[in-house]
């Protein structure tokens, strides 16, 4: 279980997180849905130990704060930016990540993951020769190399073709089926409805509502007759229609 309670974090005068609270359970994909600048990436950074919160607590699988190295051992993250070394091959990237996480057989594990994301035939090619979709799939594999219990995926399908997107979503679903706890940020409503067990709508550094897609649609976007609307209309009802920077 990932428990995030009343997290606050400011950067100078800017309050990025203002009491964000949520829980994600094992076997669940929790979608973090929010407009640009809502605080999703900052929240992921706090949950993975990149940022120290000004206030509030994060507990990962009952082991405590991700600032502790022992806790980071069970956390995996696929950052929004492709975080891979261009001049290393796909296998070298994963083997390196395996070694810094203390994986016992990093080469075997790397090949296993490369096969899972459909890149084993390109294992010896440098990442700079990969398409955007291939890089995204490898970025996801990098998060899983040490078989983490808690996985944070920050917009893992941004800018990829439908084939790669499907492969990534299948991999995410597979993680949840194997009991991993997944926190997944996205802008795509259809994607959130497709794979997230529950969705937390976040804006201005706060979780505004949480529930299944159907619950959110029924609670926050009923039509005139009281019938449930769509997830998108619920999202707009919660976060407003003003344009964000």
């Amino acid at each position: 279980m990932i428990r995030v309670s009343d997290i606050r974090r400011s950067f100078g005068a800017l309050r990025a997180l203002d009491g964000a609270t949520f829980e994600a359970r094992p076997g669940e994909v929790l979608g973090l849905l929010g407009p640009n600048g809502a605080g999703k990436s900052t929240l992921i950074a706090v949950c993975t130990g990149q940022l120290v919160p000004d206030a509030g607590t994060v507990d990962i699988m009952g082991l405590g704060s991700p600032l502790r190295p022992e806790v980071r051992r069970i956390i995996g993250i696929a950052p929004q930016q492709i975080a891979l070394h261009d001049d290393l091959t796909a296998r070298e990237n994963l083997v390196f990540l395996g070694r810094i996480h203390g994986v016992r057989e990093p080469v075997r594990r790397a090949d296993e993951l490369l096969a899972r994301v459909g890149l084993l035939p390109r294992a010896r090619d440098r990442v700079k020769s990969f398409s955007g979709g291939m890089q995204r799939r490898l970025n996801l594999a990098g998060a899983l190399v040490h078989d983490p219990q808690a996985v944070f995926l920050d917009e893992p399908t941004a800018g990829v073709d439908p084939q790669s997107r499907t492969a990534i979503l299948d991999a995410v679903r597979d993680l949840a089926e194997h009991g991993r706890t997944v926190v997944y940020t996205t802008h795509y409503m259809e994607e959130a409805e497709r794979i997230c067990s529950r969705i937390a709508v976040i804006d201005h550094g706060r979780v505004l509502a949480a529930g299944t897609a159907a619950e959110l649609a029924a609670t926050h976007a009923p039509d005139a007759a009281g019938a449930p609307g769509t997830l998108e209309s619920a999202f707009l009802a919660l976060t407003g229609r003003s344009l964000r920077d």
């Binding site: 993975t48 130990g49 990149q50 991700p66 980071r72 956390i75 993250i77 950052p79 929004q80 930016q81 492709i82 975080a83 891979l84 070394h85 261009d86 990540l97 810094i100 990098g142």
Partner: peptide, 9 residues
């Protein structure tokens, strides 16, 4: 490039 995030986490 963000690879430092992998190290920090």
């Amino acid at each position: 490039r963000g690879t430092l995030v992998r190290l920090v986490t």
